[in-house]
Amino acid sequence: MDRTDARLRELFAVETPPGLGRRLREALRNEPATLETLLDRFHVQATERGVSRLAYGRGHDVAAGRGRRHAEQARHELGEYLGGRRTFFTVPVDLAGVGEFQERVLAEAERIPFGEVTSYSALARRIGHPQAARAVGNALGANPVPVIVPCHRVIRGDGSWGHYAFGGALKTRLLELERTTPVLIGCTSTRIVCRRGCAHEQRIGEDRRVVFASVADAGEVGYRPCKVCLPD
C-alpha cells in the first residue's frame, strides 16, 4: 500500500450525519406514487400525419383511419414516459396550422434534453429573437402537444415555473420525474448502451442494468452505443 492509498482511505472515511438511518426508514415507508396513474386523464387527437393535440382533463381520444395508429402509439409512449420507462418520444406530431414562429419555438423546445431546463429568454436567443422572450412564452403556452413537445422544460429566468397549460402542479411532477429517471442504460451481458425507452433497453433484465453518464464514459469501460436508438 502506497501513501496515496492511505490518504484515499482516510479521505473516504466520511462521517455519517445524525439521524440518517431514521430518515431512510421513513422514506421507505413513504414510497412515491407513480405518475402512470394519470395516463387516463390525457387525451390524444391524431391525424394521419401524427399527433395533433394532447389534452388533459375530461375528454376522449379523437382519431380516424391511419390516425388511430398514431393515437395508440402516443398513448403507449406516454404511459411509459409517466412510468419512468421512457425518456424520448418517437410518435410523429402534426403541427399543421401552427404559425412559422411558433413552429420554430416548438422545434427548439424539442431539443432541450430530458431532465434539463432552460429559460424563456435563452430559448428566444437560440431562435435568433433575443427580445422575444414573452412571445416565446405565448408560443409555448399555445403548444398543441405538451409533454411530447416538452414545453414543461422551459421556466422563467428567476427559477419560477411560469404558465403551464396543464397546471403548475403537473409541471413540477414532470420535472421531478425527469430528475429521477436515468437516461443511458447499459446491458451487462451485451455491453451495449441504449437510451431509456429503446426497444432493446426495455428487454434488459433488472439485474443486468447499469447507468452511464455519457456514451464516452461507457466506451471507456467496454460498452458500445446501440445502433437502433443512437444515444449521444
Binding site: P182, L184, R209, V210, V211, F212, A213
Partner: peptide
Amino acid sequence: RSLTNVCIDELRRRRV
C-alpha cells in the same frame, strides 16, 4: 449497483 446507478445519472445531469 443501485447506488452507483443513481450517482452516475446525477453526474450525467451535471455534465449536460
